[in-house]
Nucleic acid binder design. Structure first.
Lengths: 118, 118
DNA sequence: GTATCATCTGGTGTTAACACCAAGTCAATA
DNA sequence: TATTGACTTGGTGTTAACACCAGATGATAC
């Protein structure tokens, strides 16, 4: 798969795809003999996963560390799991925070409704 | 109330407080005759509200617009309400997105658990 | 063979949201 | 009265996460 197709498939720019590989957000992508990237299912899987994590705000730095550990094989399983757990907790915190603010906003809006009636 | 006290109270830097005022994230803060900021309850209320919104990711730009409308008086009530509604919807979308990713992460972690048992 | 592509690498530019700094003012304190 | 300390403004610096650009290469179309 060419970078243009992957770019299309996941709605990401080619620049972002190359950036992700450069900084280690995904493992190295296989190349054709002439050096052109040739994405396979494995690479696409990573891209999809990283894209999803990035969209929800997991920092690049954390994901780079995860990929680094992953590439060191099964001996890092335990650490990787811990890393994911940490992010899960962070996510839960953020969700709770957002929900609280959501309620606050909602009641502020209700206030506006009340004011209209008067 | 001095800026140092407000800074302490809301755990924000003095720089951030001045920045918020400068860009219009909060209405102008009253000053003592010598020009020093003297925050009252009204100002503190704004700071608390804006701080809360910013923490959850509502863009500065949107909040500036809200404050601008607010300062134009009650004739902008309807627009302000619409603005808040838009943000509420955005928040709901983001929360849904985060929750989906949360579940994904959680099951990935469960996978790690399974692998350990074998 | 040459014009047209898409791709490559290496480097610089951008944006949001502050953080930091310097030089000046003012009030209180020793 | 001299020093200390908090505050002021105006300006520049920082960081993350890409976006954009230029020049070179290699395959394909004509």
């Amino acid at each position: 798969m060419l970078i243009s197709e992957v770019s299309e498939k996941y709605s990401m720019t080619q620049d972002t795809l190359r950036y992700y590989e450069r900084v280690g957000l995904i493992p190295p992508v296989p190349r054709k003999p002439n050096g052109i990237r040739d994405y396979d299912d494995y690479s696409c899987g990573w891209i999809e996963f990283i894209h999803c994590m990035r969209k929800t705000g997991v920092p690049v730095e954390v994901l780079v560390e995860y990929v680094r550990l992953y590439q060191q094989g099964s001996k890092t399983k335990e650490i990787r799991k811990e890393l994911l757990l940490t992010e899960l907790n962070r996510l839960d915190d953020r969700i709770a925070n957002l929900q609280a603010t959501r309620e606050r906003l909602a009641s502020k809006i209700e206030n506006y409704d009340d004011l209209e009636k008067s």
